[in-house]
Design a protein around this nucleic acid. Structure first.
Length: 455
RNA sequence: GGAGGGGUGGCAGAGCGGUUUAAUGCGACGGUCUUGAAAACCGUUGUGGGGCAACUCACCGGGGGUUCGAAUCCCUCCCCCUCCGCCA
């Protein structure tokens, strides 16, 4: 949500952003909004005047009720009419306001689609960071990434797709899951499940070491939580809505697609002290996504599933702190992938591809699948500045002067489990179909290598 | 699933149809006093909208209604608490 005063001050800049961010201009109609805004303010002052009159009449009524009655009834009629107009105007005013995207970072790359995303950096095990001249836009760095599984003992073999590796190792079963739950579900069993637990442990230990607060949030939430983070109204079809017949209250509940909405909603309608900011949190939760619109895409394996486990990192910050946290999250992302010795790149998302409305700046971290020779998104780091905090009404009292300000929110994927498992299977696969266990996980997994099941 | 009680300013807590929208206490902030502090005393102390401003309007869990007039009466929803039942 934007500050209406700032929209009035800079309508042309907002129009430009609506265009750049590819928001539907019929929904985010700045001119129409300005028109309604003017009407609304006019009606508001009419209401104010009527109320002032009503007060006077009521005061007369104290001593002479009969005299007040007639005038009062007339005023009531008129204010009903104007209230009605005001409500109607406000409804449309709000509906448009909800579709305005956040202001953007002046340094956000301008572009028409993902081909215009800018590569910030790329890293390869042992070799380290690619020199800047090998980075570019779109997939420019791909040709400089390893072309065979990086951790394989030999290079002369045909790498397998993660689905096949997972099946051979007896650790990923999408067939049986299909019977039980339908397409895009999976059972993860045995050693691969242990590997997931080990990844979780690796990262949670690091986050605890950094004094991040763990939180176990509700996963079924009301509409306001999803609206607050701007997953609604845009992404309404991306979440599952629970049928209301068998829930206690008649309000609809939604399964979260990420713990971000529910974590930030922990602070909804609260006023924090500047001294306690930034608050850094992480949650380990399942995530549920309908994947409407991508049915038929990535149907193999566990790359795109309806349910997956994720560690989410969130921060509620003061005004000047969000940019720093945005970098801190990136550092943690890099730390994890370097621990696991997985090649990756970081992409600065351009205006047309920068996620939901709340985005002020956004980057993706993409693992390089050296077996499949493609990048795969595993983390998304987003600075939403005060956009979400306005919707959720999260404020803080400033240290000096005691004024109130909206907090900033920053969110990042700590790790998307399924996809990280894919990355490990792909990059650590061996010619015989076995998969080495990344060094950093060996202690917890208790094995150096996962072997295919016989037969 | 059943029965009952309750939601008022940062907190506690009065008000239950008309002493401008909220008593009183605590806390917080400023001041007096003091070498300093405490105590005492004096003053200030909610949020949001509109306006350059003086100012003005709204808000007593949310929404709707009755009334000249609602924190106060009615309806409805939400939330919290207590007891019974069921349950990992």
């Amino acid at each position: 949500m934007l500050d209406p005063r700032q929209i009035r001050a800079e309508p042309e800049r907002l129009k430009e952003i609506v265009r750049l961010r590819r928001v539907d201009p019929r929904k985010a109609d700045v001119d129409r909004w300005l028109e309604l805004d003017e009407q609304r303010r006019r009606l508001q002052s009419e209401i104010d005047n009527l109320n002032a009159e009503k007060k006077q009449v009521a005061a007369i009524g104290k001593s002479d009720p009969q005299a007040a009655r007639e005038k009062g009834q007339e005023l009531r009629e008129r204010s009903r009419e104007i209230d009605g107009q005001f409500d109607e105007v406000t409804r449309e005013w709000n509906a448009i306001l909800e579709w305005f995207p956040n202001w953007i970072d002046p340094d956000m790359p301008i572009g028409a689609g993902e081909e215009d995303n800018v590569e910030e950096r790329a890293w390869i095990p042992v070799a380290g960071y690619l020199p800047p001249e090998k980075l570019g836009r779109a997939n420019d760095s791909a040709k400089h990434m390893p072309q065979t599984p990086v951790h394989a003992e030999e290079t002369e073999f045909k790498p397998l797709h993660h689905t096949e590796l997972g099946e051979r190792l007896g650790g990923i079963d999408t067939l049986q899951a299909g019977k039980v739950s339908g397409s895009r579900f999976a059972y993860i069993i045995g050693d691969i499940a242990v590997m997931q637990m080990a990844i979780q442990r690796l990262l949670t230990d690091e986050l605890l070491r950094r004094s991040y607060q763990p939180i176990v949030p509700p996963l079924l939430v009301r509409e306001r939580a999803l609206f607050g983070t701007s997953h609604f109204p845009e992404g309404r079809d991306q979440v599952y809505e629970i049928k209301t017949d068998n829930v206690e209250e008649p309000l609809p509940l939604f399964l979260v697609g990420s713990s971000e909405p529910t974590n930030f909603s922990y602070f909804m309608d609260r006023t924090l002290d500047e001294a306690e900011l930034p608050v850094r949190l992480f949650a380990v939760t399942p995530c549920f996504r309908s994947e409407a619109g991508s049915w038929g895409k990535d149907v193999k394996g566990i790359k795109r599933v309806h349910q997956f486990d994720k560690i989410e990192m969130n921060a509620v910050t003061a005004e000047g702190q969000s940019a720093g946290i945005y970098e801190e999250f990136r550092e943690i992302n890099e730390w994890l992938l370097q621990q696991l010795e997985l090649p990756y790149r970081i992409v600065d998302k351009c205006t047309a591809d920068a996620g939901y409305l709340a985005t002020y700046r956004q980057r993706d971290v993409e693992v390089w699948l050296s077996g499949s020779r493609e990048f795969m998104e595993v983390m998304t780091d987003t600075n939403a500045t005060e956009y979400q905090a306005r919707r959720l009404n999260i404020r803080y009292r400033t240290a000096e002067g005691g004024g109130l300000k909206h907090a900033h929110t920053v969110n990042d994927t700590g790790v998307a489990m399924g996809r990280l498992l894919i990355a490990i299977l792909d990059n650590y696969q061996q010619p015989d179909g076995s998969v080495k266990v990344p060094e950093a996980l060996r202690g917890l997994v208790g094995k150096e290598r996962l072997a295919p099941k016989q037969g």
